[in-house]
């Protein structure tokens, strides 16, 4: 833990606590009112899920279009448990259940499908996401197409921020570790990575499951904020939303994903009454971006806060992790 924190100098801490405090005060004095709180939560949830997708897409170079399916698992677990047991302990138990289920389902999907390459993987994960959705649609306990309603609300700014920070730190530590570098080498050249002794399948499966866990956490936070969840909330369109955030921010870039999640969620709010126009803009943006800047705006680069304050980051070595 000490080591995990030692790499962050005071500007980082100032920003992490500053953003939290500022938003908390703004909520307290009601400048961020109930309406803006929805947007704020939307940003946080998209960010967590998109970070998970970015791990899969940006670090190991695999493709997943079934991300919303894992979000559904987290959401339904929390919903079912907290409706029966409406307490904070119930919430954590539900989230934990979601995480366990996600690991199981993620492994079941990942182990066979990650043997596939690129496009096949995209279709297989898309299919898996659809299968999860259709199963939720047909189960008794999930109340079919009507979904679950009356879920107690636990998600607030503090809880959301803790999870956002945890996910960012987790991914940052992963990216600049030996494990992360191994994943990046798989993305660049799988055969060469394998020849260098990297256990390609193991790393791909692990990253896939990590990414799925992020989505599950996002789903848990989603369910206990919006009161209502339905299977159709977690369809292909949502997976595409996350894909859009990752692609826009840059595949492999954490800071890019943060910026893109904020930007895209705000854009969604502004264009709320023009839902079709919004999708047309997204689609055009995807096409143009892929033609002119296929790695996304930031590529896999990061914006280091520390560097802005003139402190040199010890070049991302830390070979011992």
């Amino acid at each position: 833990m000490k080591k995990l924190l030692s790499r962050f100098h005071w500007p980082m801490w100032a920003i992490i606590l500053g953003v939290y405090g500022l938003v908390a005060i703004l909520i307290e004095v009601d400048i961020i009112n109930a309406y803006y709180r929805i947007t704020l939560t939307q940003i946080g949830i998209s960010l967590i899920a998109a970070l998970g997708l970015n791990m899969i897409l940006g670090l190991s170079g695999q493709f997943s279009l079934g991300h919303a399916g894992f979000m559904a698992i987290g959401a339904y677990s929390v919903a079912i448990v907290t409706i029966a047991q409406p307490s904070v302990i119930g919430w954590f138990a539900g989230m934990l259940l979601g995480l366990v289920l996600t690991v199981v389902v993620g492994l079941v999907i990942a182990i066979p499908t990650l043997r596939l390459k690129g496009d096949y993987l995209a279709i297989a994960t898309l299919g898996s996401g659809e299968i999860i959705r259709i199963i939720l649609l047909n189960m008794k306990i999930t109340n079919g197409a009507a979904g679950l309603s009356g879920i107690p609300q636990f998600t607030n700014w503090t809880l959301l921020y803790i999870f956002i920070m945890f996910c960012i730190l987790f991914m940052a530590r992963l990216k600049f570790s030996r494990f992360g570098r191994a994943a990046l080498s798989i993305k660049d050249d799988e055969i060469a990575a394998e020849a260098m002794g990297i256990q390609v399948t193991k790393i791909k499966v692990m990253i896939f499951v990590f990414g799925a866990l992020f989505a599950s956490v996002a789903g848990s936070l989603y369910a206990s904020f919006y009161y209502v969840i339905k299977p159709e909330t977690f369809g292909i369109a949502r997976s595409i939303d996350f894909l859009m955030i990752v692609v826009l921010g840059g595949m492999g870039s954490i800071s890019g994903t943060i910026a893109a999640a904020i930007f895209m969620s705000l854009l969604t709010v502004f264009l709320q009454s023009f839902a079709q126009l919004r999708m047309i803009i997204y689609a055009l943006a995807l096409i143009v971006l892929m033609i002119y800047r296929p790695t996304g705006l930031l590529g896999s680069k990061e914006i280091f806060v520390n560097r802005m304050f003139g402190k040199k980051v010890k070049s991302s070595g830390n070979s011992s992790s």
Binding site: G61, F63, L277, L286, I287
Partner: peptide, 26 residues
């Protein structure tokens, strides 16, 4: 995108698909 990565081409295809769907809807 003839010489771009497979993922870039795939994402473009998804983009085209959504563009056509929602333009028609529009």
């Amino acid at each position: 995108l003839r010489n771009a990565t497979r993922i870039a081409a795939l994402i473009t295809a998804i983009g085209v698909s959504f563009l056509l769907q929602y333009s028609t809807m529009f």
